[in-house]
Design a binder for these strands. Structure first.
Length: 434
RNA sequence: GUGGGCGUAGCUCAGUCGGUCAGAGCGCCGGAUUGUGGUUCCGGAGGUCGCCGGUUCGAUCCCGGUCGCCCACCCCA
């Protein structure tokens, strides 16, 4: 309710007060931990990139959804909406000298100029993890394993989320087999992508609107209604190309089952991913309840690096945003415990003991304790109340009695027990941990 | 960009068919308790009822616009 609108926060952007930054930090730490376990190295790039980097990859219509402008030098620039083009550009310049495969991850802040909705803002942070230089399905499996672990490390499991997987090459083979003309392919992919939301009738209408033949439309509608692996294999058992296109996903599943992650996998013929540059296995992570938009999306993009002028290198990776994931954690009660503001709360009873208190605070801090004390005189009761509210483990009281006897009263705030500890011990650090 | 819903204290929300209707709970601050806390009791601060305009004797309440949030569409990270 700011009276001066000009100072209001921009729509779709967030402030991170400590309580909210704690969740973001919690998520980032889990992401970094998991990526390191898989041997990924962290990188970053500039948040502002040449507009052309995105136009080249996604076409002119992408500009509608970007934060873009001309800088003072007349360059057309954009705040990065995704990380993959930057990664491709970075690697295009130096991948030749690097050992393959390259395992890199990043947690960039990304921007899009779109109307915000739940789970979708104009700004978010996104974990990107990619393996570059390996075309085999082993890399695909490795990458989805990272994505699954990046979520499960936050306390969610098989009952909470699922990885829906598909293969662009398989979809193409099926479309060919069903008699979809090559010119209709992109349009049909878009309709399949929406099948979950549009429903069977909407899907049929969408296909009809494209001018797909009757027989092809019926075949596709059938697959969308029952896109299970067994049904697919049965339906196309006499089609060599389709059966061949099913092989990589079979191997992919075997690897992930060996890792113990098979329970997360679910084949889904309608997962095709909107981005044009995917060339092979694609996947999305969803909450099991199906209440939210995708937590994560990714797949194989073997042509992208040469598209931006690099050496032709196969690549596979994913992006996982902090917004939907954070909401899911909130819904499932998987939020991190609040971190106490301090370990020790120091109470000086009279101004005469203030110097002694500062000395003790200094010693405790030097030994790694987080220490707070009242900046202005207040009653002991009030200070203890503050200590309790801050979640301090101990209160250290220094009054005339302690000053006279050369001690500090150390009170355990959970149990209420307290002892007189010689101040010399605390200054030396011996009393720091108690 | 299109359509719909909503917008009252820091938070969650009540309320007025337009006339002491500006409230509750939680939170915050203070006191009971000037050397012992998370309970309890008492008190206090804090809102031009999103903003602008219109109708009216009078608008937080009705109307229009605007901004923001939410939902669906579009699009997808």
């Amino acid at each position: 309710m700011p009276s001066d609108k000009s100072f209001a926060k921009l729509p779709g952007f967030r402030d991170f007060v400590p309580a909210e930054l704690a969740l973001r930090t919690h998520i980032f730490e889990a992401w970094r931990r998991v990526c390191r376990r898989y041997g990924f190295m962290e990188y970053d790039g500039p948040p502002l990139e040449p507009l052309g980097l995105y136009v080249e990859k996604s076409g002119p219509e992408i500009v509608e959804q970007l934060y873009n402008f001309a800088d003072k030098g007349g360059r057309e620039v954009a705040l990065r909406p995704e990380m993959t083009p930057s990664l491709a550009r970075i690697l295009a310049q130096r991948s030749r000298g690097m050992a393959k495969p390259i395992r890199w991850f990043s947690i960039p802040q990304l921007f899009r100029y779109e109307r915000s909705q739940r789970g979708r803002l104009r700004e978010h942070f996104q974990l990107n993890a990619d393996i570059v230089g390996e075309a085999g399905v082993g890399a695909d499996a490795e990458v989805v394993a990272v994505a699954i672990d990046a979520v499960s490390a936050l306390g969610l499991g098989e009952r909470d989320f699922v990885a829906r997987v598909n293969d662009r090459r398989l979809v193409t083979a099926v479309l060919d087999e069903a008699g979809v003309a090559e010119g209709h392919r992109a349009g049909v992919l878009a309709v399949i992508d929406k099948a979950g939301r549009a429903g069977p009738a909407g899907t049929r209408a969408g296909l009809a609107a494209l001018g797909v033949g009757e027989a092809a439309a019926r075949a596709l509608a059938e697959l969308v209604a029952d896109g299970s692996w067994d049904h697919l294999r049965d339906r196309f058992r006499s089609s060599g190309p389709v059966l061949a296109a099913m092989q990589p996903l079979e191997e992919y599943r075997e690897i992930l089952e060996a890792m113990g992650l098979g329970g997360y996998l679910s084949f889904d013929f309608t997962v095709v991913r909107g981005l044009a540059y995917y060339t092979g296995i694609v996947f999305e992570l969803f909450d099991r309840a199906g209440e939210m938009r995708a937590i994560c999306g990714g797949g194989r993009y073997d042509r992208l690096l040469e598209l931006v002028g690099g050496e032709p290198l196969p690549a596979v990776g994913f992006g996982m945003g902090d917004v939907v994931l954070g909401e899911l954690l909130r819904d499932r009660g998987a939020l991190p415990d609040a971190v106490p503001a301090c370990d020790d709360y120091l109470i000086w009873v009279e101004p005469a003991q203030r110097s002694q208190a500062m000395k003790v605070a200094r010693a405790l801090r030097r030994h790694g304790r987080a220490v707070l004390y009242g900046l202005a005189p207040r009653g002991v009761g009030k200070q203890l109340r503050t200590a309790a509210r801050l979640g301090a483990a101990r209160a250290l009281i220094i009054g005339p009695d302690e000053a006279a006897s050369g001690t500090v009263t150390v009170r355990d705030l959970a149990s209420g027990r307290q002892d007189a500890v010689p101040v010399e011990l605390i200054l030396r650090g011996d009393g720091a941990g108690l």
